[in-house]
């Protein structure tokens, strides 16, 4: 009897990916169209009246923020639905009765959700190259930030999916917390542009650290230091894992 149920993890991962491919055109068309719209509005209409930001053209400047905006919301919604839907339909009992540890289930579900986010992030990047010239100064760090953010927010989404008791609750955190924080977190501007006290207040917005770090990997400049961004990510992942550990230990909203 092997110590790890690799077949089980693969079964979940594969099924989750198949679920995405069932709606493949929707999965691809949505980010492509959204990105194109943002470029038309922010890049062409507004950007033409804007000066360079941090030594970068405005169009190129918003690319990392735009990617983050979609990655955060997609990670959360993919992972939360992946676990909420089985809870809703009752198929969760099969997962709970399987010879699979909670940790293995998390890796499989979160891995699949994060994979989808990374793919969507890359599609947005590709779409952006049709509108602006993009240079990536630190490609390895860019990929690392992309992966870490996708994993961190898929974990967060997984927690929301376990916590949620209704489809309304499922939508509340992404739409009322994450999207506003992303817009206010410098997705389309540098917080340097803000006057006090808003600049200091912004530093309490966790998304600032994500976007800043990601933008640094593209353009070499960010609102906060890369170390601060990485420390925030590590802390956020640790917090999510701790919450999940408590949830599984107590069977919270999964087992009676």
């Amino acid at each position: 009897m092997p110590g790890i149920n690799l077949h089980g993890m693969w079964a979940i991962y594969r099924t989750e990916m198949q679920r995405a491919f069932r709606t493949v055109w929707q999965s691809i068309a949505t980010p492509v169209i959204t990105t194109a719209l943002y470029f038309v509005v922010f890049g062409a209409a507004i950007g033409s009246h804007m000066q360079q930001m941090g030594g970068v053209d405005y169009g190129a400047f918003i690319v990392p923020g735009l990617m983050m905006l979609t990655i955060l919301t997609q990670s959360i919604s993919n992972a939360s639905i992946a676990i909420y839907f089985p809870k809703f339909t009752g198929t969760i009992s099969e997962i709970l009765s399987a010879p699979l540890s909670a940790f293995e289930a998390v890796i499989a579900y979160v891995g699949a959700a994060a994979t989808k986010s990374v793919i969507i992030g890359l599609i947005i990047l590709l779409t952006a190259t049709f509108f602006v010239k993009i240079e990536i100064l630190h490609p390895v760090w860019m990929v690392a930030f992309l992966l870490i953010t996708s994993i961190a927010f898929s974990l967060f989404g997984f927690i929301i999916g376990i916590w949620a008791k209704s489809f309304e609750q499922l939508a509340i955190i992404p739409s009322l917390v994450v999207t506003p924080l992303t817009f206010l977190g410098g997705a389309f501007y540098s917080i340097e542009m803000l006057s006090q006290p808003w600049r200091t207040i912004s530093l309490f917005n966790p998304v600032v650290y994500l976007i800043s770090g990601f933008r640094w990997s593209f353009h070499g400049v960010g609102d906060v230091s890369v170390a601060a961004s990485l420390a925030f990510m590590a802390g956020f992942i640790a917090l999510c894992l701790a919450v999940l550990w408590c949830m599984f230990r107590t069977g919270y909203r999964l087992k009676s």
Partner: peptide, 15 residues
């Protein structure tokens, strides 16, 4: 087919 194959994998069996 997919759902039955899924269950087999989930319970740790090779395809």
């Amino acid at each position: 087919w997919n759902t039955v194959r899924f269950s087999r994998g989930l319970f740790g069996c090779a395809p």
